[in-house]
């Protein structure tokens, strides 16, 4: 039975379970997810606590948490979970909700980078790493970030701004469903 503290509590758990095809009642709070997590030492709420917060219906805490933007997607948690709860999928779901609701992320640069990358996919279907890095540095006003490294990589031929794009861009753009991909709010 989902814990029903208020109207919102059960609905969050149910929404997560529906969207992510998971059964949170299977979680017995063993904490193996948090033990395995690559970035747990940096998080405000560990994966185990995230599951509990979902059960308690704490949307606001979850959508504003630093943990959402620190999950690196390494999948150690789900592979260690005795109940095989797909925690990376849950974190993706929460991130997407927070992003769609325009909640200011604790790690704005992570979102900026991801949005710029999607912008490149929208425009060209592919990503040129060099162009993306340059765009990111300009957008975040860190004009000289990695300049030295960039030069070294240029010398090694690791910088190619001319990655050819896909031909079927119209068809590809349909996949974005009219959403302003890569356009930051």
């Amino acid at each position: 039975m989902p814990i029903r503290i208020g109207e919102s509590s059960s609905s969050l758990q149910e929404r997560v379970e529906e969207a992510c095809s998971v059964d949170l009642s299977q979680c017995y709070e063993c904490g193996k997810c948090s033990g395995g997590c690559s970035t747990t030492h940096l998080m405000d709420y560990t994966p185990r606590k995230i599951i509990q917060l979902i059960k308690l219906g704490y949307c606001d805490i979850l959508y504003n948490s630093d943990a959402l933007w620190l999950c690196v997607g390494c999948h150690l948690c789900v592979d260690r979970c005795p109940a095989q709860i797909d925690i990376p999928r849950i974190v993706d779901y929460l991130r997407e909700q927070a992003y769609q609701q325009g909640i200011k992320p604790t790690r704005e640069q992570v979102v900026t980078f991801n949005a710029l990358m999607l912008g490149s996919v929208f425009k060209r279907g592919r990503v040129s790493e060099a162009t993306l890095m340059l765009q990111f540095n300009l957008r975040t006003r860190r004009y000289f970030k990695d300049a030295q490294l960039g030069t070294k990589m240029l010398v090694k031929g690791k910088v190619n701004p001319f990655v050819p794009g896909v031909k079927g861009t119209r068809e590809l753009r349909r996949l974005f469903r009219g959403k302003p991909a890569g356009k930051e709010r």
């Binding site: 993706d92 991130r95 999607l118 896909v166 974005f176 469903r177 991909a181």
Partner: peptide, 22 residues
């Protein structure tokens, strides 16, 4: 022929349906 970017972390962390569609 004409493969597209997988969307990497950017797609699956911001738009699940887009990630699967790519």
């Amino acid at each position: 022929k004409d493969w597209n970017c997988c969307g990497a972390t950017a797609a699956h962390s911001l738009d699940h349906l887009l990630a699967v569609s790519l």
